[in-house]
Simulated assay, not measured.
Amino acid sequence: MTAKIILKMGDLEFNFEGSENFIKEELVELMTSIKGLLEYENKKIVKSNAFASGAASSVQQTLGINSVAQKLKVKDGKDLVLASAAKISIFGEKIKFTSKDLLLEMRSAVSYFKESYATNLNRQINRMTKEGILNDVGGGYYSLPIDQLKGLQEILLGGDHTIFSDDKPQDIKPLSVPLVKLIKINGFESNQVGKFLAATYFLTKKGVIPMKTSDVTSALRTLQIRLTNATECLNKNIKKGYIEKVSSHEFIVTDDGEAAIRIKE
């Protein structure tokens, strides 16, 4: 005999159907998932670390995974992976995520999730990275391409809300500042660690995410700047918390690293 549960809380609606025994056994886990979703729904301000766009602004709105899935018209496993990635990236304060992060969100989408989606998740992720829907940033982490992320945030937040602010502090527009000026403004002319950070920040704003040491040294070489020990510069910036490794050879600038760079036109 089958039973059906329908729970509606604000904008969230949960539909679950299965055997009575299964519902009894899984009810605690189901309520735990609902509790987690409500905690997200009750947040008033969500800060997004949408690193590839520039400085992120606060979003006065948040959506649970079921609401995200509904807005994105999820129909299959691939759609649910994308919806989960959007939920994590836009509302979850994560610049990158693992397959476990995705699966956790997918399972929370009780109105859409099927167990077969979990079984096929790794294959689905591999296909989506090959298609350019997801970025494989190394170390078991993935991210959404910047254009994909912008399109999703438009659908989920609309024109009145954005996590991609064009108005930077002090009217700063990072992409308009050349690297050579960035180094000078920050007083890094004689500071190789600072030059490395400035180049990393500059490349981030150009969309090179993640990057390798060779990307940084190449950018500096165009200015006739050669680092004595690029690896040491990288490690010192990591120690300061300005750079974070996402794989053995790739890294990104952290929020603290971005805050350490000043730009004045």
Results as ranks from 00 to 15, higher is better:
K240H: 08
S248F: 04
L104M: 05
G194I: 09
A86P: 03
N237L: 04
E25K: 15
L121G: 00
A55M: 07
I6R: 08
N66M: 03
A118H: 00
Q61L: 10
G187R: 06
T119Y: 13
F113C: 01
L102F: 00
S248N: 12
F251I: 08
G194S: 10
Q192Y: 07
E265K: 15
L7W: 02
L175F: 06
I261H: 04
S67H: 05
V246D: 13
T217F: 07
A56C: 05
F202C: 03
L220K: 09
S19D: 09
L182G: 07
S116I: 10
K239D: 11
Q153G: 05
A55R: 12
G54V: 01
T222K: 13
S143T: 08
A85P: 04
N15S: 11
G54W: 03
G54P: 02
S67P: 00
I45F: 11
K78P: 01
T98G: 01
L182T: 13
Y141K: 03
S190K: 15
G92F: 06
K205A: 03
V216I: 15
N191Y: 11
E244N: 05
V246C: 15
E232V: 09
K35N: 12
R221N: 10
S176G: 02
I155K: 14
K168H: 08
I238H: 04
S111Q: 05
T119V: 12
E250H: 09
G77I: 02
K195Y: 06
F91M: 10
L121N: 00
E17W: 01
A259N: 12
N21D: 12
K173F: 11
K43Q: 15
V81M: 02
H249N: 15
R123E: 14
L220T: 10
A69Y: 04
N186L: 07
Y201C: 01
